[in-house]
């Protein structure tokens, strides 16, 4: 059992025709190790508030004063519900429903596939109903992959199901797309060439 009840629907996977279900709780680095934060202090010794100054210097924008959205060329705001997911050709893609509570086919993958993967979030799992065959596969170090979508949107993420001595985890993220390097050729990625210009924390 997790330390306090999980609120979301369970993660349900189907492995070799048998269904297993897990409670899940999102965890992050700060929850495991704690964290360090740097606090700027004003001359009175109190923490400063971060804000934005508009480019023309006319407006101080405190948190909550800025919003964002999509607009057409005439400046009309487009309600979020009217927006579609579009593929590179501009064609609409279908809405992907949430996978929570819905059995998802889990398939074993090779370890290198699990490493060519960018993890966006980690969930600690506690089994509600665990099929013995899945239990055995996880115990032997099998890594399973299944589709994952927390809420309905236009893109299902991918999840990996793993177990180690510490527990069972669901890693949610997206596959990486590395290329092969060849003798007289290296892949050209569409990204800024100098990592020093970028906030590395943003990746």
């Amino acid at each position: 059992m997790l330390a306090y009840p999980a609120m979301a629907k369970p993660i349900v996977v189907q492995f070799r025709g048998k269904t297993s279900s897990f409670e899940h709780r999102k965890i992050d680095r700060g929850k495991i190790y704690g964290k360090k934060i740097r606090l700027p202090l004003d001359p009175d010794g109190y923490p400063c508030e971060r804000a934005q100054l508009s480019e023309d210097g006319a407006l101080v924008l405190r948190p909550g004063m800025v919003s964002q959205g999509y607009f057409d060329p005439a400046g009309e705001w487009i309600p979020t519900g009217d927006l579609l997911g579009l593929d590179p050709q501009g064609e609409p893609v279908r809405l992907v429903p949430s996978t929570l509570g819905v059995p998802q086919d889990a398939t074993p993958i090779e370890p290198w596939e699990a490493l060519e993967f960018q993890v966006n979030s980690v969930h600690l799992l506690a089994p509600d109903a665990l099929d013995p065959e899945l239990d055995d596969a996880l115990l032997r170090g099998t890594i399973l992959r299944f589709p994952f979508n927390y809420g309905a949107d236009f893109h299902a993420e991918t999840a990996l199901l793993v177990r180690n001595d510490e527990g069972t985890f669901c890693l949610v993220g997206v596959p990486l797309l590395p290329s092969w390097a060849e003798p007289n050729d290296v892949p050209v990625y569409d990204e800024p060439s100098d990592l020093g210009d970028l906030d590395f924390e943003m990746f």
């Binding site: 607009f71 057409d72 997911g85 064609e91």
Partner: peptide, 23 residues
């Protein structure tokens, strides 16, 4: 940095839209 699979962009069919921050 290795590129990764990306999400579809949001928009409208046959009508350009732009993303903006506003006051």
């Amino acid at each position: 940095i290795v590129p990764h699979e990306t999400s579809p962009r949001l928009g409208l069919r046959n009508r350009p839209v732009s993303f903006r921050r506003y006051v």
